[in-house]
Nucleic acid binder design. Structure first.
Lengths: 188, 188, 188, 188
DNA sequence: TATGAATGAGTGTTCATTCAT
DNA sequence: CATGAATGAACACTCATTCAT
């Protein structure tokens, strides 16, 4: 208490809790307890629980963008890049106890404008990531955006269903599907 | 109040509310108000809010099974059946204000054993539905289950991302992807 | 359900529960569940929870009177009779998990006229029991009533404190005190 | 509302209510109404109703210890000290509308570990008080502890039965018994 | 910047009792 | 004689937020 970085500690604690239990199932009290902060300090740093949620989503988005950027720039073939991203999903699901996509999960619970914007911009970035990989293979040919979106959806389905079923096979199933779509696009 | 069929009214009200707002954001008070029942009447018919949730999921599962059965038995080609199911998704999303999959949404908020079972058995049924269609095309050849699961994931991704983005394109994108996977399987 | 003797079953179930948990901590639902009766059947046989409580106290009073009568009539010296009654207390406390005196316990929770009457008449009977024993030793001499009451109080204290402490020593301590009082009365 | 010292007011209100009506018959609502506090303020200061009960018992224990200490240190003979303590009981019972011993009454309704500890430690203190008086008369002779316990039980019985019967005679009866035991011990 | 106390409105659940059949 | 469904009021407890210091 009284330590500096209260904002950081709140953000970290809230992030863990929101992710593990879901926005609606986490109370301010739980957050500040874990962050070892006073309640009023919370409202000094964040306008509301919802505002905190936005900041959280923004924060993890930035982190995940870094990871995607490094994959994009890695000396790998496009297919290998897809494979690497899917590998990372496996790890993530196991580490996070199959809690799935923070954006989709939050979307199921929160209606607020600001939160929805974070969700949309994250999803747009993800689609762009897949589009960039596809274009590394096929150039800016027609249909690359559509292919990227198909990959995006399959990937998303894997995240969702791995969470629903608490199983890992959806990731591998999605890997196959994505590679099939990838190849089929080349064979047009 | 004092009318009969309280159970039905509760179930109907809860169904709408759970779907629209999400389990955690719906209170018993709101449910009984909409159902025009006393609170104690609620607990005469349902052991707990969670128990009601289970009954709700079971109920809509049974209804959706009927719809899938009638598609399976319709005089259509397998590809047409997939198309019809995807058409229905479009309608559903528009009617439900893009609230997505009740099972996935609930899974994001509830940890209970009983609820998870409902989710798992619904998802299993959906995979079986796709498997049945795939087998109508390809017989019981090796890999039909894997193909069905890929379709399942892509379909699931469309539902999730249509909800996230409040847009309909994921459905059409998934339709293309699913047909591509379907064809590619035949071309092996 | 639907079996005969519903009244008996309710009375038995309520007795156990009232004794073990205390009147205020037992709900009608728990009683009828244990008695395997419908709720409306309960109110067919008993006007209210409080009325049931009265009947229960009356019932166990009658049973305990039988036990005291048999001690009074047994071929023992007065001192032995006291000893026997105190022996029985030890057994009772161990069997009942040290739940103490149902009358005193109920008195701590219920204010009703009817219940208080049961309590008072039970306590009067107990005082009479001790008085009868004392008179068997000392005749109807002056002060026998006062002695009986002193024994009564010491006995009561043992019951209360054995419950408070979940220990058995108060019974033995009371035994000594009672015998001391008994002897001292003779030595006047 | 909004006044300071909510904790004190809650504790005072709860003390009165618990004593008069018994723990189980007092609701949080009644307490906060009497204390003129918001419900959430209650839980700012006390973890639970049970926790409040513990604090209450601790508080009145400390007060009663003060009274006993002042008797112990008063310039009186041991017998006079016993008499004074018994006098105080008379007053207490009349003032409290014969509600008896808060510890025994609470013990009849609450099973919690923490509460039972308070009860046990209070009873231990009371036994020590009687032991101290006995030792002031007889020194640390053998059997002083046993005598103190006999006095303790008789005293306890008077409290219990005065409550049961709403009468004052048990106090005077116990006074006689206690003095008899006290004298008889000297005559051994 | 940091804090603990305070709050109104809400949570899910249980109470003893009644009523129509 | 028996019953399941219905109820208003109460239960203990938590919510996100504000305020005085």
């Amino acid at each position: 208490m009284g330590k500096p970085n209260a904002r950081e500690r709140i953000l970290e604690a809230a992030g863990k809790l929101f992710h593990q239990q879901g926005y609606s199932n986490v109370g301010i009290n739980e957050i500040i307890k874990q962050a070892e902060t006073a309640k009023a300090s919370f409202y000094q740093h964040f306008e509301s629980k919802e505002a905190l949620c936005e900041v959280w989503l923004k924060t993890i988005h930035d982190l995940s963008e870094d990871r995607r950027r490094s994959i994009i720039n890695a000396p790998l073939t496009p297919a290998e890049k897809l494979g690497k991203y899917i590998d990372a999903l496996s790890c993530y699901l196991m580490e996070s106890d199959f809690r799935g996509c923070p954006y989709s999960n939050t979307c199921a619970m929160v209606e607020s404008e600001g939160v929805m914007e974070q969700i949309k911009s994250h999803k747009a970035a993800l689609r762009n990531f897949f589009k960039a990989i596809v274009e590394q293979e096929f150039g800016e040919a027609e249909g690359t955006g559509a292919l990227a979106d198909q990959i995006f959806l399959t990937y998303s389905g894997a995240v969702t269903e791995a969470q629903n079923l608490r199983e890992l096979w959806p990731v591998e199933s999605a890997r196959s599907a994505i590679l099939t779509l990838f190849s089929a696009f080349g064979d047009r």
